[in-house]
Design a protein around this nucleic acid. Structure first.
Length: 699
DNA sequence: CGGTCTCGT
């Protein structure tokens, strides 16, 4: 701790914070900013008038950094130093330094918009530009203006363009703190490889044979490619002459690996043995592997993308940004000087790569964030003119308003309704909050709580059911319920009710190929939602998870509630086949995803109407998680869709839309870096993807 | 019949 670079700047930091309401601190990896800034300000009296909050984009970071600081100050965790993450609040009235996820701070601001428990707010890792951090940036900017004297904000970040943030905060000072990285030599390929798997294989084996000891970290785009490369590496390593070089262990590393497999990379290797770690971008920021000296960077990443004009997500392989490339390279220099092999030419890095990754706020549906902003009731804030560091496109904001209008969260003038207010209190996507509220009216709250919690866990829930070589059909060897023909929401409900009957036994999960971690998460979410619903409602609610066991249950009320909650996500079947067209937005042709539990009737036809949880474009556009609904429930929603007037939704006169459009289309210093419209983002990604596919060759 | 990169309330 004594030799952390940041401590040499203690006086300078304190002096600057004393004189300025906002300070940007640029500190590279190893500078100690996450653990030391809060302690420095604590030493200089900033905890006398309030708590110092430090936000983190990740739960594990909030916990581990809090633990370290408590240790350094020699106090018990949870007293003077504490942390707050979802499901776990380890703070007390004594707490002076509080680490928390940015999502938790946003939640807190709902019940205390002035955040006046805090004398200082430090937004850490702002360069990652998580959706929540971006919203917090806008929020604290406003708080600085309103709270004035007793409030300090620090924005800390590794590589973020300090000037840009400084400009955002009316020219606030920028402090630079050096890091503790060893030099990393960058080696470029002469040209783009035909197959980056083969190319990674060759480079990795070359390193293994020629270079001194040190682990190799290889960045790939996804599980599939990781598995391919791992097996090729194993084969190659076996074929090397015995005694010709040191031993090797090869580890895959990605998010869907069970935790016990992930932590293997943290235990040191046996002596005289080199580790190959083949990873997704999970190893870029989330997991740090000690002992890495060589990095192989394919230059690609898989990224999820939202198109607001079609309401559709896609998962694309795209080129990384310069920031990402440098982050990857830095992973080679943590313990001693290292080398980074870039599988692309310098010219590609220099001319093709974006400077910074497109921030999440420009890649995701904003319904939840817009509802949040509406619920703050800030008289001086117009959603379309909200002060973002990088504004989302006006299309994206209008899409969010439309969604909220169809869910009755805002009225035709764009004002938040009482339904919208209740929705904003629930830590869920708006469609799911709306479903819960409707279900409560319909007398099927307990069922809806289960469905909504299951959907919150996303894919953690139903992993690959069949092994690659297993040609059995979906439910063949599975005893899991089938959704009674109504589709996936009902199946999810039935699965959880089953687990409940088995007293939440983890063994049952494994036997039915359900991820234990995911199911436990569902149980936690469900419990949290029960508490919130109990608080909101005056009556005692019936929230037990036990299924009613009536064999002829047609889930009528639950499906009605789902229809209301998903008013923006309804599809109508075509007359002669089982394709659907989406209602609302521009109508599109979509299919039910093949993994769905929805079944056809005796005539071979699927239901006339379904609601879906998500549209995802892969080989074709699919609806994922669908539920059968009745035409009579859809009719009133259709009328509402026909009557829609977007101009009014955006806050009255059409002028506000125009202004927002102009604002986002202002030329910036670097057009590449701040894309104005989603279409630009989309087309650039499309181009990058085509190049990638062309290069990937064989696949 | 298809394929899931990473976070978070």
């Amino acid at each position: 701790m004594a030799n952390l670079p940041i401590l040499q700047f203690e006086e300078k930091i304190v002096e600057t914070v004393d004189k300025n309401p906002v300070v940007v601190v640029i500190g590279e990896t190893g500078s100690g900013k996450s653990t030391q800034l809060s302690q420095i300000l604590h030493r200089h009296g900033y905890t006398k008038s309030g708590v110092i909050a430090v936000t983190q984009p990740r739960r594990v970071a909030a916990v581990s950094v809090a633990r370290r600081v408590a240790q350094e100050l020699d106090v018990p965790l949870g007293e003077d130093v504490g942390y707050a993450i979802r499901f776990e609040d380890r703070t007390s009235s004594k707490t002076r330094i509080k680490y928390l996820t940015d999502g938790v701070l946003l939640r807190e601001s709902l019940s205390n918009p002035m955040l006046d428990d805090y004398s200082v707010i430090i937004l850490d890792e702002a360069h990652e530009r998580s959706l929540n951090t971006d919203i917090l940036l806008g929020l604290v900017k406003r708080l600085v203006r309103i709270r004035r004297s007793n409030f300090k904000v620090l924005i800390t970040s590794a590589t973020l363009d300090g000037e840009k943030v400084s400009e955002f905060f009316s020219g606030c000072p920028v402090l630079n703190v050096p890091g503790k990285l060893y030099p990393v030599e960058i080696l470029y390929s002469k040209e783009r490889p035909v197959s980056y798997i083969e190319s990674s294989l060759k480079v990795a084996i070359d390193i293994h044979v020629r270079e001194p000891e040190g682990d190799i970290l290889i960045f790939m785009t996804g599980q599939d490619d990781i598995e391919k490369l791992v097996s090729k590496l194993e084969e190659k390593v076996r074929s090397l002459a015995e005694g010709s070089c040191m031993d090797a262990i090869i580890y895959p590393l990605h998010g869907s690996l069970p935790p016990e497999m992930q932590v293997r990379v943290f235990s040191p290797p046996p002596p005289n043995c080199r580790r190959f770690i083949v990873a997704t971008n999970i190893a870029e920021t989330s997991l740090t592997v000690d002992g890495v000296v060589y990095v192989i960077d394919s230059g690609y990443v898989k990224q999820r993308q939202y198109n607001p004009s079609s309401g559709m997500y896609s998962l694309d392989v795209i080129q990384i940004s310069k920031v990402q490339a440098n982050q990857r390279a830095g992973r080679a220099g943590r313990t001693r000087p290292g080398k980074c092999y870039r599988l692309y030419p310098l010219a590609v890095y220099r001319d093709d790569f974006l400077d910074a990754t497109i921030p999440e706020i420009q890649r995701t549906s904003l319904a939840g964030s817009v509802l949040y902003l509406k619920s703050l009731d800030l008289p001086d804030i117009d959603i379309l003119k909200f002060d973002f560091l990088d504004a989302p496109s006006s299309e994206s904001l209008e899409d969010a308003l439309k969604q909220l209008y169809f869910m009755d969260a805002i009225d035709e003038n764009g004002a938040i309704t009482s339904i919208g207010r209740t929705m904003s209190e629930l830590p869920l996507e708006p469609s799911l909050s709306r479903t819960l509220i409707e279900a409560n009216e319909n007398g099927c709250l307990s069922q809806a709580l289960t469905v909504v919690a299951m959907l919150s866990a996303e894919t953690t829930l139903l992993p690959a059911r069949s092994k690659p070589n297993d040609k059995k059909r979906k439910h063949d060897d599975s005893n899991l319920p089938d959704g009674s023909g109504y589709g996936d929401h009902i199946q999810l409900l039935q699965i959880f009710e089953c687990w409940d009957r088995y007293n939440y036994d983890p063994v049952w999960c494994k036997e039915n190929s359900l991820q234990v971690r995911g199911m436990v998460f569902v149980k936690d979410v469900r419990r949290q939602l029960c508490q919130i619903m109990q608080k909101i409602s005056k009556d005692r609610l019936e929230v037990g998870a036990h299924g009613r066991n009536s064999s002829r249950d047609n889930y009528m009320n639950l499906r009605k509630a789902l229809c209301v909650g998903n008013a923006n996500q309804i599809a109508e079947r075509m007359l002669r086949h089982n394709g659907y067209r989406t209602l609302s937005f521009a109508s599109q042709l979509v299919q039910v995803h093949p993994s769905s539990a929805l079944t056809a009737g005796n005539d071979g036809m699927l239901p006339n109407y379904v609601v879906y949880h998500e549209l995802i474009s892969t080989t074709r556009p699919f609806m994922r998680n669908v539920c059968a609904v009745e035409m009579s429930w859809v009719a009133p929603i259709k009328r509402k869709i026909d009557k829609l007037n977007v101009r009014k939704l955006s806050g009255g006169p059409a002028s506000s839309i125009k202004e927002a459009e102009q604002k986002t289309e202002l030329p910036s210093k670097n057009d590449e870096e701040t894309p104005a419209a989603t279409e630009n983002v989309g087309s650039r990604i499309e181009a990058a993807r085509e190049r990638f596919l062309a290069r990937k060759g064989q696949k």
